[in-house]
Amino acid sequence: MEHIILHFIAKYGYYALFAALVTGIVGLPVPDEILLTFSGFLVSVGRFRFAWVLLVAFAGSVVGMSISFWIGHRFGLPLLETYGRKIHITPERLHSVERWFNRFGKFAVPVGYFIPGVRHLTAYFTGISKWPYSTFLLYAALGGLLWSSTFLTIGVFVGHRWRLVTLYLHKYLLAAGLLLLVAAALVWWVRRRRSKIM
């Protein structure tokens, strides 16, 4: 599957990258970080232009997140619980992400981009929680820009070693995401204690 998608991007360029990111973020088994670092590699060899590929990746991520948001907004949690397995969303993952989302709120959307398995669900939960779309879009756009530019830049700098570097990143990304969560929880706890004292 991965080989087919990468060949598709190498052949059809920006359009293929956009389509792959949209479907990957909605929930299909598309290796998003691999797509971005591969695209960064294509920039390094002159096949893509960085500004264009960043724009396309950013747009694909925001469109994918927006589709997920509106599915969550319109159909709610029962749809994901009933049909989620077909796009690799298990009830266990749903409930763990729901708890995490409810705890960290708005931070969950931009930070969630960097955590495998979470990125695909935060937009659904913002829709289920009936956020205003304008608020969701602000946080989704911020996260999408940071996420896209990070992995594209890595791909540009590592060049032909993009696959090896991506494997290591993917391996440690979950651990890094958990550290970010702990840090966010600590900040939240400290602020809460200060507000009680004051």
Rank of each mutant, 00 (worst) to 15 (best):
E81N: 09
H73S: 12
L137N: 02
W52I: 10
P29A: 00
T37V: 13
L21S: 12
I89S: 06
R99D: 14
G112F: 01
I128D: 07
G84V: 10
S39Q: 06
L35W: 00
E33C: 00
A51L: 13
G24H: 09
A123R: 02
G144V: 03
V56I: 14
Y15A: 15
R103H: 10
K106Q: 12
T135W: 11
Y113C: 10
H73M: 07
P78A: 01
F58S: 05
V56A: 00
G27A: 08
R47K: 14
L17H: 12
L138N: 06
P132F: 03
E92C: 02
T90P: 06
W52F: 14
R119C: 03
F75C: 09
S44V: 00
V30Y: 08
I34A: 15
L80N: 00
N102K: 14
L42H: 08
V111K: 06
R93N: 09
S61R: 08
K106M: 09
V53F: 10
F50S: 08
Y15R: 13
G117A: 04
P91D: 12
F104R: 07
E98L: 14
Y15C: 10
T135Y: 09
F18I: 13
R103D: 14
A108N: 01
L54V: 13
G117F: 00
G64Q: 06
K86A: 15
H73A: 12
G76F: 05
R99Y: 12
F114P: 09
F38D: 04
E81L: 15
V26Y: 00
F114G: 09
A20G: 03
G143I: 09
H95C: 00
V97K: 05
F41Y: 15
Y14S: 04
S129D: 13
T122V: 15
H120Y: 02
G84M: 10
R119M: 08
I115K: 05
F58W: 12
W70V: 00
Y83L: 10
G112W: 01
S39V: 02
G13E: 03
L94H: 03
H73T: 07
P78G: 02
A57H: 04
V118L: 00
F50H: 03
F75W: 11
I87L: 05
G24K: 09
S134I: 03
G112I: 00
G24W: 06
A123I: 01
Y113F: 15
K106N: 08
P132Y: 10
A57E: 10
